[in-house]
């Protein structure tokens, strides 16, 4: 054996040990990150299921000591807020994405739009709450469902823009060219060829975005404010699941703590439900 080969053999063992050590550390960090996930999910499951029943979904919150309280109004509130957000975020987001992908991909203006979208994505949600408070709550002199919906809508816009743009870019240019060569107008090409081709991905993106804003709490504190009664009026404060969970979680009552867990289970189910819709929309399209 040559000298170099000798050296090599001698050093091989410690190198191997270090290798296994580092690989083990990586495995452990992965396991470490999964512990909180399982802890959160099992606690929501176990503690939440105890208080989650039909009454919980249909009833109003009850005062401490009275049985049968629920989060029906908060669930409805969340649905109202999320619908408002979708109404605002989806058109603006999709149209912007169409501009970025179909009309002008490069240049100062589209880069600025992308930069702004990324910046909006990174704004702390509480700051969005401040902004909407200033432009809607103050002039209207009231917290309102509208303000909450706008706040969530602002947060939805950048998610929809970036997701949709990515999906539109995956549509091969050859399809656009085929349509143009048939003599279709550009808007026709976009509406009849490009969007239908990318629609599965776009719906998935939008649903995941909606699921994300549905769990937002901080901006709602300054806009929708919360409401312990039934309300779907846009100019009145409105309840929301995350708000209700927050109120109950920081209360001193065990009973309310249980309700907070049940609310969390409900919120997670809403989020899951939206993801399942996204999946179903995708699948339904495939069969066509």
């Amino acid at each position: 054996m040559s000298e170099i080969q000798n050296q090599y053999a001698k050093r091989y063992k410690p190198r191997k040990i270090i290798n296994y050590l580092m690989l083990t550390i990586m495995l452990l960090s992965t396991l470490l990150a999964l512990i909180p996930l399982f802890s959160i999910l099992t606690h929501i499951g176990i503690s939440g299921i105890k208080a989650l029943d039909l009454q919980f979904i249909t009833n109003l919150p009850a005062p401490v000591g009275e049985p049968g309280g629920g989060m029906g109004n908060a669930l409805v509130g969340t649905l109202v807020l999320v619908s408002l957000a979708a109404l605002m975020g989806i058109p603006v987001g999709v149209l912007t994405a169409i501009y970025l992908s179909e009309y002008q991909q490069t240049g100062l203006f589209p880069s600025t739009v992308r930069f702004v979208a990324d910046s909006l994505l990174g704004i702390p949600s509480i700051v969005v709450g401040i902004f909407v408070y200033l432009i809607i709550v103050l002039p209207m002199k009231s917290f309102s469902a509208l303000a909450g919906g706008v706040a969530l809508g602002i947060m939805l816009i950048p998610i929809v823009i970036r997701g949709t743009e990515g999906m539109l870019k995956m549509v091969p240019d050859s399809l656009r060219e085929a349509a143009l060569a048939l003599g279709m107008r550009k808007w026709r090409v976009i509406v009849s060829i490009v969007l239908p081709t990318a629609i599965k991905g776009i719906i998935t993106t939008i649903m995941l975005g909606i699921a994300r804003v549905a769990g937002e709490t901080a901006p709602l504190l300054l806009t929708a404010f919360g409401n312990h009664f039934w309300s779907t009026k846009l100019d009145q404060p409105i309840g929301a699941l995350p708000l209700q969970i927050f109120t109950y979680a920081i209360s001193p009552f065990d009973e309310w703590h249980n309700q907070a867990w049940a609310g969390s289970l409900l919120l997670i189910l809403v989020v899951l439900f939206l993801s399942i819709i996204a999946r179903l929309a995708t699948r339904g399209n495939k069969l066509n």
């Binding site: 990150a33 909180p36 996930l37 802890s39 959160i40 606690h43 929501i44 699921a211 994300r212 549905a214 769990g215 937002e216 709490t217 901080a218 995350p242 969970i245 927050f246 979680a249 920081i250 703590h257 907070a260 867990w261 969390s264 919120l267 997670i268 989020v271």
Partner: peptide, 18 residues
């Protein structure tokens, strides 16, 4: 999935478990 959990649920879990 850790990113999909709403932050208020992290807070709730934080108070009572973590």
């Amino acid at each position: 999935l850790l990113a999909a959990i709403p932050s208020v649920i992290y807070g709730l879990w934080g108070i009572f478990v973590f």
